[in-house]
Each structure stands twice: as C-alpha cells, then as structure tokens.
C-alpha cells in the first residue's frame, strides 16, 4: 500500500512551497550578490574563530563608529562558539578578552550614591555601546540616513552574508551619465531605482542604487593580529562572517542538534516501519 510516488509527491510539494515563498522585485534593481563561500555554510559548516576575531576587529575599528549592535553584550563575544571563546573560561563573564574589550568603552550610568548621570567603563554584561545617543543624532551625522543596527543584518537581507560582502566590496565609480546626489554613493548591489538619476538611454539604466554609506573599507586600514593581509575583499569577508555569527550565535549548536535529532528519528522510523510490517503481516490490504 505504500505508494512511493505519493510520498515523493508530498515531499516535492513541500519543496515547491519553498520555491514559491521566494519573493521578487519590481521597479527597483540590484545586482545578484557575488559568489563567495564561508566555513560556516552547509549542514556541517562551523565558524572559523580566527575569521570571527578578524571580523570583530573590522567592526570595532570601522563599522562601529556608525553602526550599533544593540542585541549583543560584550560577554557574548566570549560565548561558546563566539570569536573570543576559550575553554578556560566557560562563563563568558570571566573571560579576560571580553573584559578587556568592554572596559575600553564608556557607557552612561547613574551614580547610585549621588544620582548624577555619569560615564563609566563598560562591563561584560553591558550591551554594545551605541555610537550615537539617538536616531536623530545618527541621521544628522550621516546626511539624513541613519546607519541601521547590524545585530541581525545577516538575516535581515535576502542573501545574508553574501549580500553584505558584495555591498562592502562592491563600491565602484558611478557610470558616466549617473547624477549622484551629494552624500550618496553608487553601489550596484544596493537595491534602488536609478531611473530618476540617469541621463543616458532609457533602457540602459544602471542596476543598483545610491546608498548613504561612504565606502567604509580601504586596503590596510585595519591591521589583523594574525598577520592576514587586510585587503578590502578580506575585510569584507571577515566582517560578513562576524555579522553572520552575531545574527545567529547558536547556528553551530542548531546544526549539531539537528544531526542528533535526525539520527534519532531515522532509527525510530526504521523500528516503526519494521513493527508496522510485522503487525500487518496477516492483513490483506
């Protein structure tokens, strides 16, 4: 009675739904993200800790001046699977790395004795310090476009880390015929509709958009402690890996648990199928 075709059809239907769920764009255009691969991709993928450390450095030295990461605390950097995890410090709050990173930031607090507003060095339990006191200040400092929080950026864009990597390493000179608004920068990977800024042929409007972020990366603008050469491409890749980790710190644990669950279910299904065959052996059906 087991009709393989029907079971297959059900699976196929489920997969078709995944395809159906993918949305598409209309008037806006953007270039497909570049091909790139990271160690954490695929069902067996794991984060490369050295890469996460380099990525954090890029965030700390470059992106952090404009972008917050409000969902992270300094202790998270030393969480299991995080950039500064060490087996010696199972409790991330004990980690000297997390402590050292935190104490370089001044955060606002209230003096519990006097009630005065003060600044004190951050502790591991503080959230990452916000670069701007509020959104208006962030806007004012960036020509009207507030830099979005990066905690979830790797999940909040179609393409995830590939998109971020392409955006950061994809700044190019605007094609002749494109009028770029002052304070904006042409990027083919950024979603936009450039027809209003284009003076050339109507059917040759360049893909991409104008973004309010100046190209943030420059060759050798950061120095990696592990000696890796800090090209734009390398920095973009590393910071994208760091943001992928930050968006889902439990990714490795998720996949590891998944394998245990699948093995368990497969054995369970096998036993049930054997029981089914045995229980039903005398029933004509």
């Amino acid at each position: 009675m087991l009709r393989k075709t029907t079971v297959l059809a059900a699976f196929g239907f489920a997969l078709a739904l995944v395809g159906v769920a993918a949305p598409a764009s209309a008037a806006t255009t953007e270039r497909e993200p570049k091909e790139a691969s990271w160690s954490f991709e695929g069902p067996f993928g794991k984060f490369d800790q050295a890469q996460l450390q380099r990525g954090y450095k890029v965030y700390h030295d470059v992106c952090g001046t404009c972008h917050g990461m409000n969902l992270l605390s300094y202790r998270n950097l030393a969480d299991k699977g995080g950039p500064f995890y060490s087996e010696k410090y199972p409790n991330p709050n004990d980690s000297p790395f997390a402590k050292a990173i935190a104490k370089d930031f001044q955060v606002a607090d209230i003096d519990s004795e006097t009630g005065d507003a003060i600044q004190r060095p951050a502790t591991t339990s503080d959230h990452f310090r916000q670069p701007f006191p509020n959104e208006a200040a962030a806007r004012a400092a960036n020509g009207g476009a507030a830099p979005p929080d990066l905690s979830l950026m790797a999940k909040a864009r179609e393409g995830g880390p590939r998109y971020i990597y392409s955006l950061l390493s994809g700044f190019v000179d605007p094609p002749a015929g494109l009028t770029v608004t002052p304070g904006k920068y042409y990027n083919p990977y950024y979603q936009g509709d450039l027809s209003g800024f284009w003076t050339g042929a109507k059917d040759k409007v360049p893909v991409g958009g104008l973004i309010g972020m100046p190209p943030p990366l420059h060759d050798d603008a950061v120095t990696f402690d592990d000696g890796t050469k800090a090209t734009i491409d390398q920095q973009a890749k590393d910071v994208s890996a760091f943001l992928a980790w930050a968006a889902e710190p439990h990714q490795e644990e998720r996949k590891k648990t998944g394998f245990a669950v699948l093995i368990y279910l497969a054995i369970f299904a096998g036993l049930l199928y054997a029981s089914y065959r045995r229980v039903w052996r005398n029933i004509a059906h």
Binding site: A21, E158, G160, T257
Partner: peptide, 14 residues
C-alpha cells in the same frame, strides 16, 4: 535545524 528561515521572510528580521 537546517533551514529555519527558508519559509519566512528576511524583512521580518527588521
């Protein structure tokens, strides 16, 4: 465990 966000939409993480 392997594609938890495949059925969702990226914009919902904004």
């Amino acid at each position: 465990f392997f594609m938890p966000d495949a059925l969702g939409h990226a914009d919902n993480y904004v």
